[in-house]
Design a protein around this nucleic acid. Sequence first.
DNA 1: TTGTAGGCGTTATCAG
DNA 2: CTGATAACGCCTACAA
Lengths: 346, 346
Amino acid sequence: MAAAAPGSPEKNTRPGPKVATIYDVAKMAGVNPSTVSRAFSKPGRVSAKTAGLIEEAASTLSYTPNPMARALPTGQTETLGLIIADITNPTYFEIVRGAQTISSARGYTLVLAESAESANTELKTAQRMLASVDGLILAGSRMDDTVILDLSSKKPLVVINREVVGVPCVIPDVAKGVAEAIRHLAGNGHKKVAFVAGHPGSWMSAHRWDAVQSACEWSRLECVYVESSKSTTNGGRDVARAVLASGATAILAYNDLLAIGLLQELQAGGVSVPDDISIIGFDDLFGSDFTTPALTTVRSPLGRCGVAATTRLLDLLNSSQATSVTLQMETELLLRGSSGKAATHA
Amino acid sequence: MAAAAPGSPEKNTRPGPKVATIYDVAKMAGVNPSTVSRAFSKPGRVSAKTAGLIEEAASTLSYTPNPMARALPTGQTETLGLIIADITNPTYFEIVRGAQTISSARGYTLVLAESAESANTELKTAQRMLASVDGLILAGSRMDDTVILDLSSKKPLVVINREVVGVPCVIPDVAKGVAEAIRHLAGNGHKKVAFVAGHPGSWMSAHRWDAVQSACEWSRLECVYVESSKSTTNGGRDVARAVLASGATAILAYNDLLAIGLLQELQAGGVSVPDDISIIGFDDLFGSDFTTPALTTVRSPLGRCGVAATTRLLDLLNSSQATSVTLQMETELLLRGSSGKAATHA
DNA sequence: TTGTAGGCGTTATCAG
DNA sequence: CTGATAACGCCTACAA
């Protein structure tokens, strides 16, 4: 008998004592509702005495402002939206974490949605969200640049892990990390490295491949491009054979998941890592240090990207500074056990 | 010149063409606003012809109902709240994933918040959320049973990973998985197992310890309880020494993180797993198969718990069936490489 | 400093 | 089936 419905067993409305409104508080405090409103929305614009009365009445009634009702006149919902490409991909967890932390720290509510890797559902989700959110964060968006730009003209919008001109972006600066990685490989006698790509439509994958190419050129290393079916451990397992056939002595995988799959499959096939082949991943994903050897990886500060993007968005919200600059978060090589000297094949 | 403000550079309001309302649609379709409202909220209660007109007008104006405005008269926000104990703990991600998937599939929005392991902030968060949400999901709650019960009397509420009488709960049924694990150990000649506990206040940790005790009793195994500072890999590393000193030949760790930390620390210390000591974790956490040997673990169907809890909540929402039964999701032993025959110590 | 009145976008209750 | 009109809970000029 936790909740005994008094009258008729209605649809789904709670019977409970109707939640208090400013009217109830006003009546109890003996003031006008608008005064109560002020007391809550602009502290200081009400006398200390009445503020006290209101405060007291409010707490005995356990009054809480109704965010919906508040959002109507103001247009501000105190809510941020985060759309990620794939909830299934642990890469995004760090971003969610960062965004949620900052949001709640600044008194905002975070609503989460995923686009299931579909540009279409992503757009629909974004449009629905637009109506109930003050600003939007897109992580790993699959939508066209023009669509994103258009969206950003309606509500403040920040993009993570991708660059769109005219829209504030937060991306990891892969150049530094990749350069370190390639230098590390070159210094260990490697001559040929294979880049195992991710999803063909992924902006980030292309971006990383570019960085790898220029770094290799600079270090006079040969690099080959290997396609993969999907950016998961299974995807990694699937391409192990192809990578081996390429003749490369070192692998740069598009992400850690691929790298780990590769590592496991190669080890299972009797290939020793890093003695026979070196493997380097991307992201420093949760669990990438669980492997033996632990995975060398180019750390993408995803968490900090989430934090930075959210901070950025909130700043945009209360300053209207139209700075659509791309923020680069530094990446770095995390040297662990899966990479080392090139095999002296003979 | 992405968004040229026409007039004055206001605070933070978007200058853009004010978003369309039912009034705009009504005018364009030549009907009354209330008819437009009907057309959207109760399809069928409007003639096919006018419905068409409205549909057309709405789409050319790209009208989207304002959720806030809609929530005001109805009291329904089409939004679900999920509060998790610690965003930092990957365990909860599966739950988030499940909840988000179901929510959006049923047209609901999911808002996410964390309690930072504090009963106090959890309560505050819950209360704030209560105002803007149709129902609440608590995962790994730290609040008192009475508080949760009280909360559940205001809005439909489902608890994950914990049992509270009078409140619908979804918990993994550890009994089965633990029994399998202990039988597995007993069958391999183990005589003494150590249970490495998690956070002292954790309901789940106590619950698992109970299960381990009864299973051990049933299989006539000795079991010892080892405290740990925190349920992380580092926490695992910290207790490695103590566990070794206990003389147990097998370890059941409260969760996979602890187990992995233990595994790494023991291996680093020259202890062979599973030859010298067997390790079994809980949860089948993401990455628990990255280790060498891969971690044997009692799989908690966290994702399915999230799904079940959300489904449950939604059912509660539109049926007012006051079923406060506890739903048990079956666990099972996932036999991988970290457990095996007891060391023949001599 | 505080009260008055009108409006935010929708739904709901009546008539017609 | 459709059109007025009053809520919903709160904010905000404007006036006192």
